[in-house]
Design a protein around this nucleic acid. Structure first.
Lengths: 216, 216
DNA sequence: ATTTCAATCCCCCGTTTACGGGGTGATCGC
DNA sequence: GCGATCACCCCGTAAACGGGGGATTGAAAT
């Protein structure tokens, strides 16, 4: 069974070139080509396995189309973005919206047929410079996530207690868990409140989260 | 100026093949080949622009080497992983450790020279199936972050109140702010606790965060 | 059309807990 | 010695908690 491919591309030259690439590949079948978002929308109910999609279309951004396709659920065709836009925001928006691959148009040596086939079989063809954005973004997120506290340094004991409070422990329960007096728990709680500049449990938890003392 | 390339690969056949690919490319200069982590470590002080790195080495995982290279800071050579290991955990570990690209060995049609050059110029060559992992991971993170509630849908009023509680409001203060009776605040708070299955403010805040009801 | 339900609002009660202040002492590192 | 941490204690007020009661509205289900 051949994969049904739809090309959404407003530049006739590019569309034709991509079309040739698709038709040259066994396993791919070009079923339609359109140059507008509106035209693509009319094809949404057809059985399409792969959209090869330009982002800069005359009647809007291809990203809208990605969102619409993903919002429909159901068949979940693959979406391969083919764009001149290589800036980080556009790339991430497309990927997060649900693109399965992102190729820059300026690659002359690109074998569209092979890339399309890769996308169909679950791969994600990315131009190297695009991939660099994605990896950078991934690592930045990781780094952001693990950037510890900053402002108020809680003592180990206080952090320990904080974790218990986060799990809904009362002062008394925490006292049992830590095997110290409830009074001492109260004292530690006071210290925590003072350091976090709050005056009750709820706000303390919020600040703990925002300070990175507690993990999502 | 040619890019200095070091190959870290224990399989002599693969190493030789990769070496040919590198030498065939203008702009790349193969300066060393080693089959062990230990051998690679001895090269860390040399001026290397690109490591082409296997992960499964006899004396440990190449991921260790990535971490060591990145921990040194300074020159920051590029690192292109070339591995048979295509599982998600390995890929993500390598990428998060600081790999600039990840290619699977099973690709016969891979032009190592071109991929290496891409890596050197800031690109991130990823095999399509690898890229799929990365994109999936990226979207999953995004989805996790914005996945509303899940179990218990709080009413608008309750969410409104929750925000106040997160800012440290007492029931009484919240009553003033929302211009309703403190008793009603108490009722809403009870509802919130019931829906979030908690029994005090602190735990409620924690659950609210983990459910995405409150933003970091 | 009736019922059922969730959401909103209001009130009272009693018990438990939290909060904020006070004071004491031991240990450890600078 | 001094400051910070950790530990313990007591007190009183204030707040939170959990249970009960009831009312209204509007939407959804029967």
């Amino acid at each position: 069974m051949k994969g049904n491919v739809v090309i959404v591309e407003d530049d006739p030259l590019v569309a034709a070139h991509v079309g040739r690439g698709v038709e040259a590949h066994d396993g791919l079948s070009l079923v339609a080509t359109t140059g507008t978002l509106a035209g693509a929308r009319e094809l949404l109910d057809r059985k399409v396995d792969l959209f090869i999609l330009d982002l800069g279309l005359p009647d809007g951004s291809g990203i809208e189309l990605i969102e619409e396709i993903r919002a429909r659920g159901g068949l979940e065709p693959k979406i391969l973005v083919l764009s001149v836009l290589g800036d980080q925001d556009t790339v991430l928006a497309a990927v997060l919206a649900g693109a399965d691959g992102y190729l820059l148009k300026d690659i002359d040596s690109l074998d569209i047929g092979q890339q399309a086939a890769d996308a169909l079989t679950g791969g994600a063809p990315l131009s190297p410079s695009i991939a660099a954005y994605v990896l950078r973004h991934l690592r930045r997120q990781r780094d952001d996530a693990k950037s510890d506290d900053a402002d108020p340094p809680l003592s180990p004991r206080e952090i320990e207690l904080l974790q218990l409070l986060a799990r809904g422990y009362s002062n008394r329960q925490a006292a049992v868990a830590l095997e110290i007096s409830p009074h001492t728990i109260g004292d530690h709680v006071k210290s925590i409140y003072r350091k976090l500049r709050v005056s009750n449990r709820g706000e303390a938890m919020v600040r703990a989260f925002r300070s990175g003392l507690l993990r999502l």
